[in-house]
């Protein structure tokens, strides 16, 4: 089962740090509370994406393992505390 999101990015075929940068770029246009998913086949994403999500103060809602080593990272943008 895949979580529905507000924006989906297919970064399969993109190598590190491509999927992370796609996620960062994509999340810029999201409103607080909206969700984004990025598909990545790059092994480095499993390390890089969760660390960035934590640093940005967003929520990693799920990492869904798919076929052929592809992972779907589901992220929610969270309002920054001022």
């Amino acid at each position: 089962m895949t979580l529905p999101v507000d924006r989906e990015i297919d970064a399969r075929g993109s190598h590190c740090p491509g999927p992370l940068m796609e996620l960062i770029r994509g999340s810029k246009s999201l409103a607080d509370g909206q969700t984004i998913a990025v598909l990545s086949a790059d092994a480095g994403s499993k390390k890089d994406i969760p660390i960035w999500v934590e640093k940005a103060g967003y929520k990693l809602l799920a990492v869904e393992e798919q076929e052929n080593g592809v992972a779907r990272f589901v992220v929610q943008k969270v309002a920054r505390k001022s």
């Binding site: 590190c16 740090p17 940068m21 960035w52």
Partner: peptide, 8 residues
């Protein structure tokens, strides 16, 4: 730098 190291 945008990622978690100083070079890709």
């Amino acid at each position: 730098y945008p990622i978690n190291r100083v070079f890709p």
